[in-house]
Design a binder for these strands. Sequence first.
DNA 1: TGTGGTAGCCGAACCGGTTAAGTAACGCTG
DNA 2: CAGCGTTACTTAACCGGTTCGGCTACCACA
Lengths: 337, 337
Amino acid sequence: MPRVTIKEIARRAGVSKGAVSYALNNQPGVSAATRARVLRVAEEMEWVPNRAARQLSAARSETFGLVLARSAQTLTEEPFYMGFVGGVESVLAERSYALALQVVTNLDDELATYRKWAAERRVDGVIVVDLRVADPRIPLLRKLGLPAVLVGDPELADGLPCVWTDGTAAMHTAVGHVASLGHRRVARVAGPPEYGDVWIRDRAFAAASSRYGLQTNVIHTDYSADQGAAATRDLLAADPRPTAIIYDNDLMAVAGLAVVQGLGAVVPRDVTLVAWDDSTLCRITHPRLTAMSHNIVAFGAEVTHRLLALLDRTPTPAHPPTTPLLIIRDSSAQPPP
Amino acid sequence: MPRVTIKEIARRAGVSKGAVSYALNNQPGVSAATRARVLRVAEEMEWVPNRAARQLSAARSETFGLVLARSAQTLTEEPFYMGFVGGVESVLAERSYALALQVVTNLDDELATYRKWAAERRVDGVIVVDLRVADPRIPLLRKLGLPAVLVGDPELADGLPCVWTDGTAAMHTAVGHVASLGHRRVARVAGPPEYGDVWIRDRAFAAASSRYGLQTNVIHTDYSADQGAAATRDLLAADPRPTAIIYDNDLMAVAGLAVVQGLGAVVPRDVTLVAWDDSTLCRITHPRLTAMSHNIVAFGAEVTHRLLALLDRTPTPAHPPTTPLLIIRDSSAQPPP
DNA sequence: TGTGGTAGCCGAACCGGTTAAGTAACGCTG
DNA sequence: CAGCGTTACTTAACCGGTTCGGCTACCACA
């Protein structure tokens, strides 16, 4: 079956190619009657614009880019990403934008990908996740002139538009929760310190702990279940051991729970656990985990809206950050006497 | 900065645009000396091909499509997808192919996506997952002439190229495992019966059970943690209750474990659990779950290779199916006396 | 030495859109 | 009714590649 092009539509509607283009793009230059006729013909012939042609001439690709720089292993483990991608897609779909998703293993490859995309004019803009402290991607994107929306605190974004949740407030809530239950020795199993979110939460954890006069202990991990389990084992081997542990994601919290149970201890009687990034995981364990919850799908959608607005040059008021909600379930209770 | 095009390269190398194209694409038509010179100039100028232009003239998009028709919820829960995507990407990256990933909520939208992609010439081929019984996507893809590789048993693929794991053999292994431990009442918490894999496993479960003379019970779910938990509750409420439960994914198995524990029972003393689709989840619970394991990342890579070969018209011998490996951990043991 | 074949390159058409520039018709104004 | 601005369209260039027909120079061969 031959592809239907605007040339063919033009022939059938009895106008020129250019007029058809104006009509189909809702641009001035054709009368209402002609526009209607062209649209009807296009409809009848089931015309679909050719992305490549449009991209070539209009210099817009109608595609956003998203690079995930994590190991394949991490990506399968972390429920975060799929949800985020889903949220992004939900917005893109209605504008018939496409998403170019690239999975790489390290930051250098991610930088290389941006370079390539910029050179190829492959994407109109990118969504940047896992913001680092002094992130090298920020100056690169500036230099490349690639529109971007960052996922992370403005403190880390260096002026680029960003969407974030208030990690500081969330951490104060979490620490306040365990402190008010009576815990005095509280540990934190954190992600990699080079991640901006982790850095902010580290700082907030220190501040909140000192406010409540807590004894603390922080172990940094790579976010993996294995290291979360190992960290938990280390913490529980200490003397005196912490009575509450706050994790930086839900995967490590679940792994930690299993470690506690493996040692014959009972949650929350012997130790209180608090997870971050509440996903289904936290609801299907026994006991169910208390967790800091944020709507990741909505988050992905919000980021995408910002990027679309950025390209439309719509002045968008910086959305106030959402604060994750602490969902109190069965893994937090008073400390043992 | 002005984009560097082959026109500019041609000027600098003192040849025509056409010659440059031949040189850069390793096609005959230019001498070795000219080719080398052109390549050097292109290198120096950091030329990157413009995807849109190439796609427009060559009628190849160098993009594969993957549609995931599940709820955003399921996608975040199921570790399967991200791993699969990672495997696909790993192969595409080295050929500098791109992946168009589309997340939709139902099969009709998936069909519409294929139609759109075919019309737009958006993708060179598609990877189809979650094969159904009498899958409507197969005739559509045939009609559209869209090259495709299916993930699923040839019995379901209706002649289209496919890659699969031997679900029948795997189920016999799983049932054999619990039967040899001495279990006689074995239940199965299955996925939706319209999925081809589920259908095949249903059949294999029935066959294997009758071979070992087992009493069985099958509950179909939507693969979600919630329904997995509910099914487990129902099974355990029966009298006599099954002493072993085989789940169709790992998420439901983990949810089932929590239900068992919530009822005060102990795994594997009181009930044996076997999961499918072994992911990290199965290793971080307590006790760790016995599971049917297959390498999902490698699977995604294999599928992608098949699709590339299909487009190259390389006659690829149908890869013999891999059989998932039963990883015996701590959730399976002899039934209570 | 004339003929045929071929390697190597050029020029131009083409893919399917967008868009600037040009033109004809029309209405309005003084 | 000349002059002017608008409207509604056409024409043609353009985006950056690929590809095909044709030209030239060179070589082999009879």
